[in-house]
């Protein structure tokens, strides 16, 4: 490397570090404040003052275990339901021509454009009429299938070689068996990518939880955080930061462990 390229490389790293500090500052201050005792929160604290008191308050004031459990249950049900419905649909759209193929494709693309907000009020009306507000069913209901999932699997299955399907057909594999025994083992990268997308979306969702939840009983993690930190709840900032740290932790850990899959997941879903 010449001196000039070394200088350029160093300057680029410096610029990236400057931006990186801005990106990471909210995390750093959140975690730091979570350990600062309430009496020092506005005056500043040193490393010797740090305490776990805020986490104790956060855990005393809210049933976080229940929130985690609800969020995990919702994420799992959502992902399984989406996988089971989207994979066969994606396969048929990619590998078969039939009457209505064009219509089916357009319906999928149309649903892809409609954001969750648009279905909120009618779905809320129905769910409240049948007395299912505040339930797990209400939380997972709008995500039982995914237009995006169908689209992603269709795109991925289009890239598979025709020969594997022909071979299976000669072996008289049924269409159902085709999805289960031929498509499934060949689309694992797409399943990982879609799984990450699906779990991240349902874990992070606040809007839908705000629509169908009224009591704290079946609170998901994001819903719990917002209720906990509602100014009316009167809970101090230190405990709020402890709660926010607890809420962010699972996905951050998952991301740090599986960075490549995470990024590929987001990537694949876009570049198809």
């Amino acid at each position: 490397m010449t001196a000039r390229t070394v200088t350029r490389e160093t300057l680029t790293h410096l610029a990236l570090a400057l931006g990186g500090v801005i990106i990471l500052a909210p995390f750093a201050i959140m975690v730091w404040t979570a350990f600062v005792p309430e009496r020092l929160i506005f005056t500043g604290a040193g490393p010797g003052d740090l305490t776990l008191e805020n986490f104790r308050i956060a855990l005393r004031e809210w049933d976080w275990l229940s929130a985690y459990r609800t969020s995990v249950v919702v994420a799992v049900i959502t992902f399984v339901a989406q996988l089971v419905t989207c994979l066969p649909a994606g396969y048929v759209l990619a590998r078969h021509r039939f009457r209505g193929h064009g219509v089916a494709t357009w319906v999928m693309l149309g649903c892809l454009i409609v954001p969750g907000q648009v279905i909120a009020i009618p779905t809320y009306v129905v769910i409240s009429r049948v007395g299912q507000l505040d339930t797990i069913l209400a939380l997972v209901w709008p995500s039982l299938t995914s237009a995006f999932g169908i689209f992603l699997f269709r795109q991925f299955i289009l890239t598979l070689p025709q020969s594997i399907f022909d071979a299976a057909r000669l072996d008289r594999v049924s269409e159902f068996g085709m999805v289960w025994r031929v498509v499934l083992p060949n689309v694992k990268p797409a399943i990982t990518a879609f799984g990450i997308f699906s779990v991240v979306s349902s874990w992070n969702d606040l809007f839908w939880a705000s629509v169908v939840l009224q009591s704290p009983d079946n609170a998901t993690v994001p819903f719990a955080v917002t209720r906990f930190t509602d100014p009316e709840a009167g809970i101090q900032y230190g405990a709020q930061m402890a709660a926010a740290s607890l809420a962010v932790l699972p996905l951050i850990i998952a991301f740090l462990v599986a960075q490549r899959q995470f990024i590929r997941g987001i990537n694949l879903s876009a570049t198809d």
Binding site: L16, G19, G20, I23, L24, A25, P26, F27, I29, M30, T33, V200, W203, N204, L206, V221, P222, F223, V225, T226, T229, Y237, Q240, M241, A243, A244, S245, A247, V248, L251, I252, A254, F255, L256, Q259, F262, I263, I266
Partner: peptide, 23 residues
């Protein structure tokens, strides 16, 4: 660097908004 800048995408926005309110 890619991981650093990607971190907010993985973080729950509702919880990070609580942190931002404090900022």
């Amino acid at each position: 660097w890619r991981s650093v800048y990607f971190l907010p995408v993985a973080a729950t926005l509702a919880a990070m908004a609580v942190a931002w309110r404090w900022l």
